[in-house]
Amino acid sequence: MADSSEPFDLNICSLHLTIDDLPDEILVEIFGELEALQQRLLQRTCARWKRILLSRRLQLVVRMDVKIELKGKDPRFKFSTFPALVKRATCLCRSPHIGRCSDDLLPVFRKILHNRTTVIQLNWIENSESYSLIEALTAWVAVFALVSQVKTPAKDGTLAEGANLTHVMLDNAVAIDGLHNLIVLAQTRTGRGSDLWRNHDPVPFKTIAYRRCRFELFGYYTSLFNNPSQYRDSLMNPFPSSHCSWVRPPMRVLDLTETKEALEQAVANSIIQSLPPLPSSIWDTLRDKVRELSTVSQMRWKAELIRKEKRFSTAQADDISLEDVEWSQLGCLTLLFFLCFDDVRIVAN
């Protein structure tokens, strides 16, 4: 009987196996791990690789790098407040430049996607250390355009490229809107967030998986793309400098067949788990904020306490004294709301 514990140094063996000795099925699996553009470039290696790289099996999963580098970025623009960012983003969206970035990306998406593709992996590539939220926003505009793109189906009724996508995997994405970027992504697909699909019957996404992503915290409350109605009346600012304004939640697979509430809860749990401890200085910050709140804003805070915190759930707003609230006893997502809340804004009817 052989002794399986006998040490054996494989590196000193004389072996002659090369990648060319592998069967097609294994090469398919190796090539399947590569990014779409690299798959195309490797077609030039030899006739066998070209044949395998063009095989239908590799059309099921497409992995793609998303690179956006805005030229001539306005160096004066600093991400100071959310309203400022919204204003800036609105200007950019009206200008042709973000559209041009999307226009550059879309033909690439169309070339690499097939109507058999069911899984897409998008890898955010940050080109420089100064990769900004505006660039992240541009990338999302392109991604939304990708998932909502509709090409007129062919006469034989075959679906457009990407029409059968059901699974999205996001790597290293920077999401200003945090969770809401993902929800809008899903809604865009189902037609709830866009009318682009109204003449077609797209396959709704089943899952969105993310890893190494960076979510801006206030994106939990408000959104460039999908302002949740309960916060429509609030002006949100970035967190005080004593607190990190973003989190990297652990990798996760969101099941989009679940309700929106369940999805929100899942991501809220992710955020809570990955949030660094809040510094004790925030208690003073909150006490100071309370003193400066307008009456309308105070009512908004009380409503938030009743909505979010169990101990206040049966209280009447008039019975709550904000100055007596034990801030340290509140859940961290409630605290984050108060930290980024600036004021109630007047919403025109």
Binding site: R40, R44, L70, K71, G72, L92, H97, N127, I134
Partner: peptide, 18 residues
């Protein structure tokens, strides 16, 4: 090479945000 030229040295997609 011609068919895959669009992938070669793929530059970052560039725009301008003036």
């Amino acid at each position: 090479r011609k068919q895959t030229a669009w992938c070669e040295d793929e530059p970052p997609r560039q725009g301008s945000n003036h």
